[in-house]
Each structure stands twice: as C-alpha cells, then as structure tokens.
C-alpha cells in the first residue's frame, strides 16, 4: 500500500500532513487504526455490514474534524473512538426511524444449525443479553478491555480515566456481569 514513506511516520506527523489536506497521509492513519475501530464498532452493533458502513463514516468524519484535533497527550485513537461513539449514536437514532426497512434487510437464515451449535449460540445470546443490561460504563470497559483486549492504559485514554480507575471499573463490571449470568455475587 502507498506510501512507504508515510508508513514510517508517527501518527503526529501523519496528522500534521493530513491537516494540510494530504489524503494519502490520512490513508496511512486509516490503515493503522481501522482494525481496532472496526472491531469496537462491531462489538457495539453486532452486524458486520453495519459495522463496515459505520467505520467508513467514522474515518470520513474524523478527516473532516481533523483540524480541531490537538494531541494534548491523548492519542489519535482516543479521538477516533470519540468520533465512533458519536457515529454510533446517529446509527441507533437512524435504526429507530428505519426499523421496518431494516427488518426487511435482515432475512433469517434458512439453514438450521446443529444442536451443539444451537446451545453455543444460546449461551452467547445469554452472555450478550447480560452484558447489554449492565450500566453503560460497565459495558464499555468490558468491550474495550475484555472483548478487544486493549491495554489498561489505552482504555484509560479512550475513556478519559486513570489506569487505576479503569482497573476498579473493570473489576466491578465483571462482578456485575457474573451476577447477571449466574445470579450470585463474586
């Protein structure tokens, strides 16, 4: 992929170029961070096709808002994360409006799954439902720290919390998730 010079630059250097309108520099930033942003979005929406669309929107919006971006100790991914959260808000708002149309799109699979697959899917559905019923900050720390396996420091930068606060939040979130799953405290 183009550009091998860009590939050696730091995020800050690429951002400076992109802020001057260099689309290729932004393309390099896209390549560096698309996977983590896509995975985060997919963890939120659970539909691959929607995650693809939203991720694309995230990067287009990020470019448009890039002139407002100042590093100030926060990494670029934290900025992208914020853009992604806003895009998800719009997505859910639109989902509510076009619920009937979306329902047409999501046609049920015609091939039944085998029994063991069904049991596994059921367990996943229970887990997903339990996670969805947690407070938003608990859900988010589990998504970032457990589902995406992001380092505590990165989660702290994205959420605007200290590492210590993230550790405690995760501990509480896992306890709450377990309570939801098995009805017992840890």
């Amino acid at each position: 992929m183009f550009n091998h010079v860009s590939a050696k630059l730091s995020d800050a250097e690429l951002i400076a170029r992109a802020q001057e309108g260099d689309a290729v520099a932004f393309g390099e930033l896209y390549e560096r961070h698309v996977v983590v942003i896509y995975r985060y979005v997919l963890a939120r929406v659970n539909v691959e096709r929607d995650a693809e669309d939203i991720t694309e929107v995230v990067f287009l919006r990020a470019f448009e808002a890039l002139h407002r971006y100042k590093e100030r100790g926060r990494p670029f991914t934290a900025f992208l994360y914020q853009v992604a959260r806003n895009a998800l808000v719009d997505y859910y708002r639109q989902q509510r409006k076009s619920e009937t149309i979306e329902a047409v799109e999501k046609l049920p699979s015609s091939s039944p799954a085998p029994d063991d697959r069904l049991m596994e899917e059921e367990r996943i559905a229970v887990l997903r439902e339990a996670l969805a019923k947690l407070p938003e900050d608990y859900q988010e720390v589990i998504r970032l720290r457990i589902l995406l396996s992001l380092p505590t420091a990165t989660v702290g930068e994205w959420l605007g919390r200290s590492e210590g606060a993230v550790r405690v939040l995760l501990h509480r979130a896992l306890k709450a998730l377990r309570r939801r799953m098995v009805g017992t405290d840890v």
């Binding site: 689309a23 932004f26 698309v34 693809e52 589902l147």
Partner: peptide
Amino acid sequence: AHASLAPQAPKLSYVAATKQRILRRLSKKS
C-alpha cells in the same frame, strides 16, 4: 466473554476497498 463475543477483524478486501473510497472522497474535498 472474550472467546464468545470478541469481534472479528474486518475483511482485508473491505479495508482495501474502503481506503480507496475514502481517498477518492478526500481527494475531492482537498
């Protein structure tokens, strides 16, 4: 939770095609 719910990475074809689309659009903007 990690084993069951960890999201997959995007398809390489998606990443490449989306990059092209984004670059085209940004090129128009710039």
